[in-house]
Design a binder for these strands. Structure first.
Lengths: 346, 346
DNA sequence: ACGTGTCAGTGAATCGTGTGACTACGCTAG
DNA sequence: CTAGCGTAGTCACACGATTCACTGACACGT
């Protein structure tokens, strides 16, 4: 059951009555050589008739570059805004004559295999890579570029090195609440191991910002699956937190989903949002604005980043050695809605 | 500014004091040749010391296959469940010694370019491809496999050929409402051109199911951006629909986001959900269960599909000619929550 | 007639790997 | 002595596109 062999440039040459060199020159539109229109037409016609497509591997071998840009994504859901950044980056990369594809690594399969298959000219990464994976990229002689959000392309030490973006988003969340007058907040985070790195970074960002502002270190509650049991758990924690002499007046949530859990829990406790309790999310999930009350959140404005990243990629390929991770602050933006207000007067 | 050249098998050979062939045989673990342990060790050591990685393009050229599986995604946000399917498929494909990468096409860049860069062994597609793109795949001699959801791999005619999955999901939505006793429903869809194919399929699914069940054809409202204006528009339409002798008692929404818009609009009109109006979404957005009331929705259970698709890919590569699109019905599941109930008694 | 220049096009090397065909050698059985 | 065999390893080609260096042929000016 053999597929009919795909046509090669030799087939085109034979059909057009010219040499392979001529085919190559004509099809690549080289300005080095000029061919009379008649010859050019013969070649183009033959190529079209045969449905000739140059063999990618052969071309890559000869040229020395594959033209593939590989974006490594963490094994996490891709939200709407990340999705549109992806589309934007794809077009931007395409404009440089290269192709962007993404690999959703996860834990099981090794990045090494994929590198061997693709031979990308550069690897982009959204989150810091594990040392073994970063080594794989380095050994293959492939430049590794971190998205501004990631901060650094590889984990420096252990699993506990959060990316810059995570730290900043946590800090921004707390700063926004502090600006509204909150002095005592709590953190709602997630326990799932897959998300540990993200979660830890965000919590750590809140902690450090609290430290900087001279606030108490916030109590932290880690949740499992976001289900009814989680709502119950949060409700229970809330009743404890809002009692006592120094009650918690605001909640930093891991993302908008967990903020929704918090809203449900607050409703169950009879706490009004934001009068009794302010709630801040992260991610600007499109659904957030239709919650009751509409959710104040922090948005990653990835789209602005896309162009910058692509430029960085181009620069690296020109030979620029190590571009410093660009400023990522402008990427984050507080989206103010009704779920955050001033703390209750005492 | 030239990067240090990456080591080739010739470098390894020189370092180990053997020929290139020996290096190749040893590293590929061929059983054709047997080499004494000492030689084998020398080669392996040299390769390790140099950090040798075989050149992907050269290998692909020689082998005649790149080992890359390309998944073409539509330019739409990737939800949580689609994301986990992606991870699952990646591992499953990796287990067959190939690599799965995804390309988020969108409108601008051509798939053709990417095919030329990657030379995939097979192209998977989530939604039917435009004829031009399908041709590009076919001309390159690459088998094209449709995910069960897509139904067929290429649009048959015009932009108006919805995929099977879309039709089914719309039908399922209406059937569920009909099972609850609703006789007159309305449809809330989306006007964005990017989503036109999806939107049209879902609406069409609802329409045909209504026809089959002998119900009236539902009125349709197409919304722009899901914002406050959209809420207003829906509220206005609702007041019209629920008046009169045969009032609308349920809403089929394009997805959970638009269902949330509907909930907000219903609240504004003073309509209670589900007592006065039932609302059904699509996608099982994780946030849906935390809306008030929790949203009844339809879930694409992609994870069950992953293995099946990968098996299909393997089959195609073995030479099986054209696998019929598998049954996709089990992929869809109604998730019953509180936003759908019986219609109000008249 | 000669040097120079341009046009139209070709030959052959090159990229790095994988592998079937082959050699060189030592040993043993007949 | 030699045919036969197993071991240890090498040679050289193939994969397909690209591109440098080159050849004829012709035109032009002196």
């Amino acid at each position: 059951m053999d597929r009919p062999r795909r046509p090669t440039s030799a087939d085109v040459a034979a059909r057009a009555g010219v040499s392979r060199s001529t085919v190559s020159y004509v099809l690549s539109g080289s300005t080095q050589h000029s061919f009379p229109q008649a010859t050019r037409d013969r070649v183009l016609l033959a190529a079209a008739e045969l449905g000739y497509t140059p063999h990618a591997a052969a071309r890559a071998l000869r040229r020395g570059t594959s033209g593939v840009v590989l974006l490594v994504l963490a094994d996490v859901p891709i939200g709407a805004n990340l999705g549109s950044m992806l589309a934007e980056m794809t077009t931007a990369v395409a404009a440089t004559g290269r192709s962007l594809v993404t690999w959703t690594g996860g834990v099981g399969p090794t990045l090494r295999e994929t590198l061997a298959h693709l031979d990308p000219v550069v690897v982009l990464t959204m989150a810091p890579l594990a040392p073994a994976e970063a080594d794989a990229v380095g050994n293959a002689g492939i430049p590794l570029v971190a998205m501004p959000y990631a901060g650094s392309a590889t984990q420096t030490v252990g699993p506990a090195a959060p990316s810059r973006g995570e730290l900043q988003v946590g800090a921004l969340q707390l700063q926004h609440l502090a600006a509204h007058g909150h002095r005592r907040v709590a953190v709602l985070t997630v326990a799932e191991p897959r998300l540990a790195l993200f979660a830890h970074g965000r919590v750590e960002g809140v902690r450090r910002a609290a430290l900087d502002l001279g606030l108490d270190q916030p109590p932290v509650l880690a949740l499992g699956e976001p289900d009814d049991a989680a709502v119950e758990a949060v409700a229970q924690a809330l009743t404890g937190w809002v009692r006592g002499p120094a009650p918690v007046t605001a909640l930093c949530c891991y993302n908008d989903l967990y903020a929704a859990v918090a809203l449900a829990a607050a409703a169950r406790c009879g706490l009004r949002v934001p009068q009794d309790l302010s709630v801040a999310g992260i991610d600007d999930d499109p659904l957030g604005r239709f919650l009751a009350p509409p959710l104040t959140t922090i948005r990653f404005d990835f789209r602005d980043t896309a162009r910058a990243v692509v430029e960085q990629v181009a620069a690296v390929l020109e030979g620029a050695p190590l571009p410093p991770p660009g400023p990522s602050s402008q990427v984050l933006r507080v989206v103010e809605r009704a779920s955050v207000g001033p703390p209750p007067a005492r």
